[in-house]
Structure formats: structure tokens, C-alpha cells
């Protein structure tokens, strides 16, 4: 992996944000992730691609310990954020998840008002000491998620009444509101129409200036459009990881080549 990272074409030269070493994930007997080591950079969009069922979501969910909620899941190996092991017994996953926000495949706003959706995270983490601060956080988050203009007049309307694309951006705003450092997105556009997809993709490119973004996608075009780094997964292995341009123009592994040319998956 180190040599991939040392590639000269890596122009951003940012620090490593997340580092994983020899991560294995088992669902009972099912070995879903096999020995994955990679380094995810700060202020970069990293895409995970691969055929369905290859473990992209599983691996993504390891990064904020969402797999803890699955009884049969067992994780081995090391994952660290800013050099701190997130599976250290002293780590409270609740705190970790405020730092590593997540956006899910299907937009899942709470059945509450738009305002409450965004305000919920800051409230439970005590990020605002009064109403004015909370209002400000909500506004900033909605602006960062590029949805402020569309909802500013109906903050008390239910979040579930928005269109699919708006809901997904609301979910992004909700994730952004806890001031995370990393944003994990699991196929955030798969339930959206092309226009909403374009809006969210544009948003992802903007989010990159502040956050380290990891996005799972089944669309290679999307990976090519939004990401700087791409990791290709296949049957639980991480086959190849590198600059997005390289992966798409000059894949090193035959399996990657087959996939991006449309022969597996």
C-alpha cells in the first residue's frame, strides 16, 4: 500500500486521516472482509467500488463502528483515526460517531421537522448552549449541505415531506451538524434520480474542502466524477487502491480491469 500512496500524481499531499491494518470482518462463519489495509487521506474523497456483496458497506461501517450493532459481526485488525485506535476499549462509539458522520443508502430523515432533524445531533452532544447557537448550527449545516435555500422558509415542516434528493441532502446536513471530521456515505445516490444525484455529487465535491469523505458507490462513473482515490473490492478482498484516474485508466489487477470494463459485477 505504501508505494501506492507514494505515487507522484498524489497532488493534495494531505495527512492520513484513517488508517486500517489487516482488518478482517466475520459475520458468524462468513468471512466478509479479508485482511484489508489502507490509508484514507484527509480532505479527500475516497470511493469504494466493487460488485454487490463484496463487502464495501461492511468495511465502511467498520470505520464508525456501526457494525457493533450487529450481534454476529466480529472485527479483527486495527483501525485508527488520527493515530487513535477506534476499537480501543476506552473508546465510546457514541463519541466516535459524532466525529465520523454517516449518510445511508436510503434517505432516512427522522419523522420530525427539518429543524429537529439537523438539531438532534448537536443537542445530544451538547454542542449548543442556547437557542441562538443551535439556530446557527442548523443554518450552517443546511447551507453546507446546499439545501438551505430550499428549506429556509419551512424549517418546521416535516423532513419526510421533502423530495428524495432533498431528504438525502437533509441527511447530509444532519451528519454535518455534529462537526464531524470524516463523512461516510453508503451509496448515497442509489435511491435518487439523475438530477438529485448530480446535486448530491456536486455537494460531495464541496464537502471535500472540510472533511475526509468516504463514499461507497456501485457506479463507476460516479466514482470517477467525485473521488480522488478509489479502492476496488472483490469478494471481501481489497484488490486495488490508488488514484482514481489510475484505477480507471490503468488498472493493475486483472479483476479491476474486468470490473471497470463491465465484465464482472
Amino acid at each position: 500500500m505504501k508505494d501506492v500512496r507514494a505515487d507522484e500524481r498524489d497532488t493534495t499531499m494531505n495527512d492520513v486521516k484513517i488508517e486500517t491494518k489487516g482488518v478482517q470482518v466475520y459475520y458468524g462463519e462468513n468471512h466478509a472482509i479479508k485482511d484489508v489495509s489502507l490509508a484514507i487521506k484527509d480532505k479527500t474523497v475516497t470511493a469504494f467500488i466493487g460488485p454487490s456483496g463484496c463487502g464495501k458497506s461492511t468495511f465502511l461501517r467498520c470505520l464508525n463502528r456501526m457494525n457493533d450493532t450487529i450481534d454476529i459481526a466480529r472485527i479483527e485488525g486495527e483501525i485508527s483515526i488520527d493515530g487513535e485506535d477506534i476499537y480501543d476499549p476506552r473508546v465510546d462509539p457514541v463519541q466516535l460517531r459524532a466525529k465520523v458522520g454517516m449518510v445511508f443508502q436510503k434517505p432516512n430523515p427522522f419523522p420530525k421537522s427539518i429543524f429537529d432533524n439537523v438539531a438532534y445531533g448537536p443537542k445530544i452532544h451538547g454542542l449548543a448552549s442556547n437557542k441562538a447557537e443551535l439556530d446557527e448550527i442548523v443554518e450552517t449545516s443546511l447551507r453546507r449541505a446546499a439545501i438551505w435555500d430550499e428549506v429556509k422558509d419551512r424549517l418546521q415542516a416535516p423532513g419526510t415531506g421533502l423530495s428524495g434528493g432533498q431528504q438525502q441532502r437533509l441527511c447530509i446536513a444532519r451528519a454535518v451538524a455534529t462537526s464531524p471530521e470524516v463523512l461516510l456515505m453508503d451509496e448515497p445516490c442509489s435511491a435518487l434520480d439523475p438530477i438529485a444525484t448530480a446535486q448530491v455529487e456536486e455537494l460531495i465535491s464541496e464537502l471535500r474542502t472540510r472533511y475526509s469523505v468516504v463514499i461507497v458507490t456501485h457506479s463507476m462513473q460516479q466514482a470517477a466524477r467525485v473521488s480522488q482515490k478509489t479502492a476496488f473490492f472483490h469478494l471481501g478482498d481489497m484488490v486495488e487502491y490508488g488514484e482514481t484516474d489510475d484505477i480507471f485508466t490503468n488498472p493493475q489487477d486483472p479483476r479491476t480491469e474486468k470490473y471497470i470494463t463491465g465484465r464482472i459485477g
Binding site: M66, A98, G101, F104, F110, G121, A175
Partner: peptide
């Protein structure tokens, strides 16, 4: 729907 639980856990709510 489990997505509601995911959403809450995802913003750092405790179980």
C-alpha cells in the same frame, strides 16, 4: 424501520 435506528446511531446517539 431499522433505518431510523441507524440514523440515530449514525449521528452519535446512544442506543
Amino acid at each position: 424501520p431499522p433505518s431510523i435506528r441507524d440514523a440515530a446511531l449514525g449521528v452519535g446517539a446512544s442506543k
